[in-house]
Design a protein around this nucleic acid. Structure first.
Lengths: 362, 362
DNA sequence: GTGGATCTTGACAACGTTGTCAACCCCGCG
DNA sequence: CGCGGGGTTGACAACGTTGTCAAGATCCAC
């Protein structure tokens, strides 16, 4: 059953069997026409008999020929956010008869450089990259050489490049506004380390919405850092368990949302404190209350990045684009909890409106 | 900023610049030694100046050379089960300096054949395949030719091949036994269409455990089919809402577990009816009660499949293996709910022990 | 000084394909 | 009957690399 690998048949083998020159085989394989019907048939039979498959490497060896493969460098395929992006890329690539090579960096810059090297040495037609860290490393050389590269989610510093990402700022503003609209004014922001670009945008969006509503956010209501879901669970529980907790929380990343939801349940506050999350979570609708979120649309991100990449591969030389993908809020319940009536619309606990501050100043 | 793609420098370009023959460049690139130090330096400088990167396709063009790439054919990368497998494969591949090409079939046989073709024409060193349907199609030719192929999750009919999969039967038996151990005897099996191999195994495991406990399972307690999570929600709600519901359910697939959990919550029975699921679910621990499951270990499946594949690529010619991966049960709460005391240990509602049946017969 | 061994270097043929060009065949027309 | 033209076919050179082998250069020993 398990056969020892035999030498793969080549065009020459097919040609010998069909009694023609190997160039004729090439013509038949590529359906160039100009071959007499009986030869087409004889060659076709020989191809079937030998199980011949053309060698793509040799085919594309000539300078400038497409390899029909693109590379996707991401942080971790096991993370559904990235694997959904990959799926979107694949869908577009399929339409261009192109395969996708994917590699995870785990956020390590040198691993990213290794992947760039591996992809480039295979002469992929282009790259889609979710950068790990702000360093561009090996990517810069390739950009300068003219290799089509589209950046996803994060943009490298000091380089003007094609970029596709979610509207972190707008989404965060929308999430915050949603809580404001439901009567909250004392809202805690719980997010990732704001030196991470997307996390910084989300904090800015939160602050912008609060500012527009004339609400001053006290510093202790802004909680940021890099932690695991479990650590966030403790941190959020501590914050909510302290005196004068906020009436609502905006959890600006999926791990944080999970940790915070645990914390709310731990404290029995899940029906009392409102929550809106950034990033959708599988099963967010199974929890009680189901979690209101501003999702990202990873598959759409992947599709758009791939479309832009194929435009570049196709030879388009326009100015670099920035494609910012917006997402509508998904209302599920947790974000529509209203604050206790005594505090509704006021800033009793900690927040003060700018008007109030102005009064006390003046 | 965006440069027009320039011709990629080749060994000859490097050679011209360094004033040596291109063969010497080849020797420097491959660190063959036997090159005088000053030439090594001159060539190295030329390589850096030109940004030269060897062309992997040309390098591996010779018959028998490895391409340093393997193909992974799966159903859908966006499904975390498959993307975790991919991650496991990638981890092993990384250790072999190999890249992974992945393609989704969406369960379509012709898409699978297209992918096989695309991978083979790129001369991947081997394939890992989660077959779509039972048809082998284009895979058979490759197997006969000796291409290393490892099958994952599902094995093709009538072929003896390397196979890595979860222990569906053992896992289902364990899940059922867990419910039996907690005093249940009236347990409903809710699973995928049993003509799907893995689903059939799980049903067999359920029946085996029930049989070993001497319990006769009435036919209406076995609910199977191919449905979406939402449809399952309705189906399960109907079953549990009818008179004499079971005291426990075994939901034998992740979509079904999600649908059933919804149904339990819809009916307010989530604290009264026990549930054990097959396949782990993200956030299964956030629901109340958290869901007890027998997980699969997709990353481990991927790792083992890749390890076997690299053994084959390395030239191993032993008999095909079957690597059945077991998983321990994850106890979280939903599976430890005990039946109402009046029914504990009895078969009052629908099930009857074999002993009881024997008595009424004799 | 000469012979041989060793070390360095380069010329050239693979590898499997496609592009280019020339040769050939057959036909119809002058 | 000869000539031109279209349609087939094949020889050969790329493509960018590695493997093979031979040509020089260098060095040591006799």
């Amino acid at each position: 059953m398990r056969n020892t690998p035999t030498r793969r048949p080549t065009m020459r083998d097919v040609a010998d069997r069909a009694g023609v020159s190997f160039k004729t085989v090439s013509r038949v394989v590529n359906e160039e026409g100009s071959v007499s019907p009986d030869l087409v048939e004889r060659v076709g039979a020989a191809i079937r008999d030998l199980g011949y498959r053309p060698d793509g490497r040799a085919r594309h060896l000539r300078q400038g020929a497409s390899t029909g493969a693109i590379g996707f460098i991401l942080v971790d395929v096991a993370n559904p956010f990235f694997s959904s992006i990959l799926r979107g890329i694949e869908e577009v690539a399929r339409g261009h008869d192109t395969l996708v090579l994917a590699g995870s960096t785990d956020g390590l810059t040198d691993r990213q450089d290794q992947l760039v090297d591996a992809f480039v040495s295979r002469r992929v037609d282009g790259l889609i990259v979710v950068p790990s860290g702000s360093s561009v490393g090996a990517l810069k050389t390739e950009l300068e050489r003219g290799t089509p590269i589209v950046f996803l989610d994060l943009e490298p510093e000091e380089l003007v490049v094609d970029l596709v990402r979610s509207d972190h700022l707008g989404g965060a503003r929308m999430a915050t506004q949603h809580l404001l609209d439901h009567g909250h004014s004392d809202i805690a922001f719980i997010g990732d380390d704001p030196t991470i670009f997307s996390a910084g945008c989300r904090l800015d969006g939160f602050l912008a919405a609060m500012d527009a509503a004339g609400i001053d956010v006290p510093p202790h209501r802004i909680i940021t850092g890099r932690h695991s879901s479990d650590t966030w669970r403790t941190i959020v529980a501590d914050h909510l368990g302290a005196p004068n907790p906020p009436t609502a929380i905006f959890t600006a990343q999926n791990f944080i949302t999970v940790g915070a939801t645990h914390a709310l349940h731990d404290l029995g506050l899940h029906q009392r404190i409102a929550q809106v999350g950034f990033d959708d979570i599988e099963l967010a609708d199974i929890v009680e209350p189901a979690i209101t979120v501003v999702p990202q649309q990873p598959r759409e991100l992947g599709r758009r990045a791939a479309e832009q990449l194929f435009r570049r591969i196709g030879g388009e030389r326009d100015e670099p684009i920035r494609d910012i993908v917006e997402s509508p809020i998904i209302v599920r319940g947790s974000g529509e909890i209203r604050p206790p009536s005594g505090r509704s619309g006021s800033n009793a606990a900690t927040g003060r409106t700018r008007a109030a501050r102005a009064r006390s100043r003046g």
